[in-house]
Design a protein around this nucleic acid. Structure first.
Length: 674
DNA sequence: CGTGTCGTGTTGCGGCTCACGGAGC
DNA sequence: CCGCAACACGACACG
């Protein structure tokens, strides 16, 4: 079976040629053709995309829409860009993820929508009927159902689809897992399992300066894996090294530049200096402490060969497609919750799966480094070991409260029976005994705290609906509500925002306790528990952020990376928006203050820039410059002329013209609405 | 002789990846 | 457990 046997001719422009399909692709496509749901479990880089294309195309022919669900925003962007190819078949493609504004009607006018699990979940809660428009649902990386926090979101989405529209075709794409059959049983799907890899992979262990594979052993001559990396580079290839902590990733990159010459004369003002220096040697580190911009830059430079080696934390293994000929897993354990634990096999497979670039490399190499006899045994096990099963994590009280509120608020359920029916459709029902007691106690909590009312038939209250629409944990809503009992205070409110379970806070080191405790005393909070301290530390970071403390100073003071600040600001942005919305119900007089707080957190600005920031292309830095040069409001700028703006440092002619233009539009809109 | 800076060695304690979300009067 | 940060102490330069 060839591409042209399944797809129309225009499709060949996308694939480039009319090649013979792999067996697992044919198997999966045949089943989809028969209207069977399918779970495909194959290693990365083995042509899963094509199967997805088929499901989408089939739905399209039937006049139905498709939903493509991925676990990460970066993956959503990547998939979206790839699927844009389908426009040549007259399909309309769109994307909907959290930080991307899309008009409410966006789905009506499109055929394919790429979403994160959370976005899919929230869409369904908002309007369950929407599911009936879909003919195909593709769940990429479906094994994330195993993830403690985020797995249940995808599980809920797929269960809802089973309940509302069992006719929608479900295609689950999974890494290699041990219980594909259970997933298949849950989704009433058939399975396609294969070990096929488009680029063959050689596995090995680096131990005592030797490389040991199944078929041969050889002496490496140089300390550890250094010679392997040098050889790969000299041969025009690239390498990825995975480390278990940010610090280790950086240290490793630092070590590498001692041994590798300068390849280029790279320069970049925004990047940390140490990183710029490494890039000149063709080396970079990569972890979530880097700003998003720097991370994307590094990924891009790796893709086009400018960077030869990346030393990374697991961000890279789960993220966008970034293969390299050589992958070295340097650590096989990771510190978490007080212990050093072995990294899961699924994760090991995911890292090894990055070895070998399809079309460029004849062979991929995936090696694990072992320092001791014990870790040698562990490495051996990891290479041959059975991957873990995917286990539903839905049976957590917190998630059930969240979920049951959503079901009631959306109208999908209003009685105990409805809820039982829904939970019967989950993977959890197959794997665990779901005691009705779980549901009852969640209902009790929701009723007790005013999220729902009614006795046998439940309804969401105003608070309940708002909480569900905002996509926040009910506990978060309660904490935010209790914040509203206090008079407005920047520090205190930030602290409350950070105390909600939807925030993931920056851990506080013992050495920092003193100044953090001072902060807590200052806002009259006398809870010095670990959670409170880390919430306070995060609040302090945010406090710096909204008072325009320079990024460098924030990261130095709190010993974190710019990426952490961005990430905390974005979470706090979302929670503070929720706080603002809650205030419109419970404390009207606080509304505008909290609206401003939300903007300040989103943009990282002091109150005086709130007006200027409305102008497109004006961020915290430019706004401050405009302000310091006497342009304090949008109207000031609208009344001025580009010549005056140009004089300010950092404003080009074009930019100045554009800014004045936008300012005029914004302020004229303002007058019209008066 | 006092002060300040740099360098070395020892001790004691803390160590830790990633990441989604907001749609009305 | 291991590695890092903090600290103590000494050498040295200089006024």
């Amino acid at each position: 079976m060839k591409v042209s046997d399944v797809f129309p001719d225009e499709f060949l422009n996308i694939t480039g040629s009319d090649f013979e399909l792999y067996k697992h692709q044919i198997d999966a496509i045949e089943r989809l053709k028969n209207n069977e749901n399918v779970i495909v479990s194959v290693p990365t880089a083995s042509g899963k995309s094509l199967i997805g294309y088929y499901a989408i195309y089939k739905a399209f022919l039937a006049g139905k829409k498709s939903m493509y669900i991925v676990p990460l925003r970066s993956l959503a962007m990547e998939k979206y860009e790839e699927l844009l190819n389908l426009r040549s078949l007259n399909m309309r493609i769109t994307i909907s993820i959290g930080d991307y504004d899309s008009p409410p009607s966006f789905i009506k006018n499109n055929d394919v929508i790429v979403v994160t699990s959370e976005r899919a979940d929230s869409m369904i809660h908002h309007d369950p009927d929407i599911i009936n428009d879909f003919g195909a649902i593709i769940a990429d990386e479906i094994h994330i159902i195993n993830d403690e926090d985020r797995g249940p979101r995808l599980e809920t989405v797929l269960s809802s689809i089973r309940v509302i529209n069992p006719d929608a075709l479900i295609l689950g794409l999974s890494a290699t897992i041990s219980n594909v059959n259970e997933l298949a049983q849950w989704l009433n799907a058939s399975t396609v399992v294969s070990n096929f890899r488009a680029v063959p992979l050689e596995l090995g262990i680096i131990y005592k300066k030797r490389l040991i594979t199944d078929s041969y052993e050889r002496y490496l001559g140089q300390p550890d894996e250094l010679s392997l990396i040098k050889d790969i580079i000299n041969d025009g290839g690239q390498a990825l090294v995975f480390r278990n902590s940010r610090k280790n990733a950086e240290k490793y990159a630092e070590m590498l530049i001692q041994h590798l010459p300068e390849f280029n004369d790279f320069n970049n003002d925004g990047m940390p200096e140490s990183l710029v220096k490494m890039i000149r040697h063709g080396i970079a580190y990569h972890h979530a402490g880097l700003s998003n911009e720097d991370r994307r830059n590094i990924e891009e430079m790796f893709k086009n060969g400018y960077i030869k080696v990346i030393s990374a934390t697991p961000t890279l293994a789960a993220g966008v497609n970034l293969p390299a000929r050589l992958v070295i897993i340097r650590d096989i354990t990771r510190y978490s919750n007080g212990y050093s634990r072995p990294i899961s096999n699924i994760e090991i497979q995911q890292m090894l799966g990055r070895a070998g670039r399809p079309k460029y490399d004849k062979m991929g190499y995936g090696y694990i480094y072992a320092a001791s006899p014990a870790s040698y045994d562990a490495a051996k096990k990891a290479l041959s070991g059975e991957p873990e099963p995917v286990i539903s994590k839905m049976d957590s009280q917190r998630l059930m409260r969240f979920n049951i509120l959503a079901l009631i608020s959306s109208g999908m359920a209003s009685r105990m029976e409805d809820l039982i029916l829904f939970y019967n459709e989950t993977l959890m029902a197959i794997q665990k005994d779901v005691d009705d007691y779980y549901i009852e106690s969640a209902l009790y909590f929701l009723k007790e705290n005013g999220f729902i009312d009614g006795d046998v038939t439940y309804n969401a209250t105003r608070l309940g609906r708002l909480t569900s629409d905002l996509y926040i944990d009910p506990e978060t809503a309660l904490i935010l509500k209790s914040a509203l009992d206090h008079d407005y205070d920047e520090k205190l409110y930030l602290y409350y925002i950070c105390r909600t379970p939807d925030m993931i806070n920056i851990p506080a080191g013992t050495r920092e306790y003193e100044y953090i405790e001072d902060f807590l005393e200052d806002i009259n909070v006398f809870d010095f528990s670990e959670e409170s301290l880390s919430a306070a530390k995060t609040a302090m970071v945010l406090l710096g952020w909204i008072n325009e403390m320079p990024m460098q100073k924030i990261t130095d003071t709190y010993n974190i990376g710019p990426g952490d600040v961005q990430q905390k600001a974005s979470s706090a942005d979302w929670i503070s928006y929720s706080l603002y919305r809650l205030s419109s119900v419970y404390k009207k007089e606080m509304e505008s203050k909290l609206f401003h707080l939300n903007i300040r957190i989103k943009e990282g600005i002091k109150p005086d820039l709130i007006d200027l920031i409305k102008i497109p292309k004006v961020g915290r830095v430019r706004a401050r410059r405009l302000y310091d040069n006497g342009f304090k409001t949008v109207d000031d700028i609208a009344r001025s002329s580009p010549e005056n703006i140009e004089k300010i440092f950092g404003f080009s002619k074009n930019l100045a013209a554009e800014i004045v233009n936008s300012a005029m539009k914004i302020s004229s809109m303002y007058y019209r609405s008066q």
